[in-house]
């Protein structure tokens, strides 16, 4: 679906065709539905389109259609500036965070949803409170911890930092999803002689597939997009992530917009693709967990 974002020809799609069914043939729909929708789509898509045009048209061209198409800017940033390495670093951090956050969130979410234990309320309260702790404000103490633990300029260190900040919300979301899986299924399996662990893997886990996709994807997007930790904790160029590389590009490529745009496309494509897949779960997940506390 989102391939349209990187394929300029279809970005300015015509507005959705008017509905054919008779009961909808109401002329005011054009003003209260189609017109605002088209305006908002333009507001959303023109910036993406602008980046795509800059990334694919030859340097010096001011054409609004990237034709003849060129990959010179991608060559510049990927090989010349090192976005190839940054991409790899971001991917390692994104996937690493995804795995760790998902596993820990499953464990903790299961504990919250299926057990009643002493200190549960305090734990939940602590999880909620973490939503108010800003990464930017934690830069100073985290830098000191990372320095003494030898985690500066290390991708592992960045996975740990991203995990610590994403896990609480992921755990709350996951406990909501676990609660939605009927406990009776699991109990029936246990009556049949399964251990709790086996019952979980055989009965509950398969039901949680959409939840795992959703929570994992959010963790990936969050880690992929994280800027300040990567900026502060990884000062060597071979450990830069895409946002850090981009931020330097913003300063250095002040005249080379083609290179900046190509770097932007490289940073955008993975998250926008992932997002297209999980967009529906986002609507469900957030309403189930985070907001309703």
């Amino acid at each position: 679906m989102t391939q349209t974002l990187t394929r300029p020809a279809t970005v300015l799609d015509p507005p959705p065709a008017p509905p054919r069914r008779k009961k909808h043939r109401d002329p005011s729909r054009y003003f209260r539905l189609h017109l605002p929708l088209v305006l908002y789509l333009l507001f959303t898509l023109i910036p993406f389109y602008w980046m795509v045009v800059f990334a694919f048209r030859p340097a010096g061209s001011t054409s609004l259609v990237p034709w003849p198409i060129t990959f010179e800017h991608f060559d510049t940033v990927w090989n010349g500036v090192g976005f190839g390495v940054f991409f790899q670093n971001s991917l390692i951090i994104g996937v690493g965070t995804l795995v760790v956050v998902t596993v820990f969130a499953l464990m903790g979410g299961y504990a919250l949803a299926r057990f009643k234990f002493r200190g549960q309320r305090v734990f939940l309260l602590a999880l909620l409170c973490t939503q108010f702790i800003p990464g930017a404000m934690m830069l100073i103490p985290l830098f000191v911890i990372f320095k003494s633990a030898g985690l500066l300029n290390s991708l592992t260190g960045l996975v740990i930092a991203d995990t610590a900040f994403q896990l609480p919300l992921a755990l709350i979301l996951m406990s909501g999803f676990v609660r939605n899986v009927p406990v009776e299924l699991e109990e029936a399996a246990m009556v049949d002689g399964c251990s709790r662990l086996r019952a979980f893997f055989a009965v509950t886990l398969p039901q949680l597939k959409p939840a795992i996709v959703a929570v994992g994807s959010f963790a990936f997007i969050g880690a992929w997009n994280n800027f300040l930790f990567a900026l502060m904790f990884a000062s060597k160029q071979d450990k830069f992530t895409l946002p850090v590389g981009l931020s330097y590009a913003l300063g250095e490529f002040n005249t080379d917009f083609g290179a900046l745009a190509a770097g932007g496309v490289i940073a955008a494509v993975p998250v926008v693709l992932v997002f297209a897949v999980v967009q529906r779960f986002l609507v469900q997940g957030l309403s189930a967990g985070a907001v309703k506390g």
Binding site: P47, W50, N225, F227, P243, S247, A249, A267, V271
Partner: peptide, 10 residues
Amino acid sequence: AVSGVLTTGI
């Protein structure tokens, strides 16, 4: 889904 830095770039 787009990061703050990328938003700036765009």
